[in-house]
């Protein structure tokens, strides 16, 4: 009796665990299958084409790819230095009384749904960008900035965690040689926590590139490559969010799946790099 129950329990739990792997495989194959029509019809023109016009069945994803890359790049450029600053403040500078409350509120802010950041961006940030940089305010630049604010809490929190792994005794040794706080941070803490810090930045990058709601509100979904950052633009997730429900023809539908597939492959790759290359040692028990 017990024996049977034991077998049942172990086998069922194993089955469920394995089903997670099957699920991921299923996701990939489904996306590939549904992309087939567009992959066959368009080939590399899909990735290299810069014209996206569903009404004449032209599906060039380059503007969306370009938008994903540039908006994420802007977000990272803005968020990385600020995140490092916040992390330094939290791990080395803040008085003990501030450390925990500020640290915890930053972690909590990372939990606020991204759609809220998008809404805030639309109503409060777009007008400011419009006034300062011109244009209509719905733009690549706005998207990058809102995205940077959205990933900031996550980045600051993980950077701080990485910096906090530096043993006190190591920092004290550098102070004992007459180092200033900054000397200790740049010569000891950052080199020591380097893998963790870079890994978390790349992880944040992987998340940012797939982020939909924070940018959908403020990007405009315009399929046009422009070097003017104040112009409306689009990205892969923005295109998906705006057009999935409209796709009528088979190839339109299929090309959106190809976009999804592309996004999944790219973020899987980025996240894997972060995880396997930089964050490997972090696994504890």
């Amino acid at each position: 009796m017990n024996n049977l129950a034991d077998k049942l329990f172990s086998n069922i739990s194993k089955l469920v665990a394995i089903s997670v792997l099957l699920l991921v495989a299923w996701i990939f194959t489904t996306l590939v299958q549904n992309s087939m029509e567009s992959i066959k019809a368009l080939g590399f023109d899909f990735i290299l084409g810069n014209k996206w016009a569903p009404n004449i069945e032209k599906f060039g994803a380059l503007p969306a790819i370009y938008g994903s890359v540039i908006s994420t790049f802007i977000a990272m450029m803005l968020a990385v230095p600020v995140a490092i600053g916040v992390a330094i403040f939290l791990s080395e500078l803040a008085p003990a009384k501030l450390k925990t409350p500020v640290g915890v509120s930053i972690e909590l802010l990372a939990a606020i749904p991204s759609v809220v950041y998008g809404m805030w961006g639309l109503f409060y940030f777009v007008p400011i960008v419009r006034d300062i940089f011109g244009g209509v305010g719905i733009s690549m630049l706005t998207a990058g900035m809102v995205l940077s604010i959205m990933i900031l809490p996550f980045m600051a929190a993980v950077t701080r965690d990485a910096m906090n792994t530096t043993p006190d005794i190591l920092k004290e040794s550098a102070y004992a040689l007459g180092g200033t706080k900054w000397d200790v941070i740049k010569d000891i803490v950052i080199p020591y926590a380097k893998a963790g810090i870079i890994g978390s930045f790349i992880l944040a990058l992987g998340r940012a590139i797939g982020e939909t709601m924070a940018v959908t509100f403020v990007m405009g979904n315009v399929h046009k490559i422009s070097f003017d950052l104040t112009k409306a633009a689009t990205s892969i997730p923005v295109t998906l969010a705006n057009e999935f429900n409209e796709a009528d023809s088979g190839i339109y539908y299929s090309s959106l799946f190809e976009l999804s597939l592309l996004l999944l492959v790219v973020s899987f790759t980025i996240i894997s790099i972060a995880k396997f290359y930089f964050l490997r040692r972090k696994r504890i028990a």
Binding site: V20, V24, I27, T30, L263, S267
Partner: peptide, 21 residues
Amino acid sequence: DISDIMMSAPSIVIGAFVYAI
């Protein structure tokens, strides 16, 4: 490992998958 990656994977893609199935 796969679960860790899935936790950070773009959620809109999951939407596309469920749309398909």
